[in-house]
């Protein structure tokens, strides 16, 4: 038997509910296992928890957490060192990601509007 409080149109009702059966696999939520008592600080998060794959050689990564404003190159495009590749925005300011060296854009991992984290690969340059 479970006791619930329900509010409808600012009126509060207390009701009792009996659970007759539960679908398999949906057992009542168990409390999370208690953490081992510890005085140490919680561990620092490992790599950014995004879907981002770790940067590979040739990847150009984001210098800070930001939103992609525009991707300023096409796959296959040849670029010179210092050319603008991607425009990011964070902290009321645009940040240009420029080519660290001359090369060809082989893949683009993000598109305008994506949120990216510091160190996340934006595109690959070969």
């Amino acid at each position: 038997m479970k006791k619930l409080r329900i509010t409808v149109d600012n009126k509060t009702y207390e009701v009792e509910v009996e659970v007759i059966s539960q679908e398999e696999g949906q057992s009542a939520p168990r409390p999370a296992p208690r953490r081992a008592a510890s005085v140490s600080a919680p561990a620092a998060p490992a790599a950014p928890a995004s879907s981002a794959a770790p940067a590979a050689a040739g990847d150009v990564v984001s210098p800070l957490s930001a939103v992609v404003v525009s991707v300023d190159v096409q796959p296959g495009q040849a670029v010179n060192e210092g050319d603008k590749l991607i425009t990011l925005e964070a902290m009321k300011m645009n940040t240009f990601v420029n080519a660290p060296a001359a090369g060809t854009v082989t893949a683009i991992h993000v598109s305008a509007g994506n949120a990216v984290e510091e160190g996340q690969p934006l595109l690959a340059l070969e």
Binding site: P63, L64, A90, M91, K92, T95
Partner: peptide
């Protein structure tokens, strides 16, 4: 320096 990390 606003060109790096937005100057933060």
């Amino acid at each position: 320096q606003p060109t790096v990390k937005a100057g933060t």
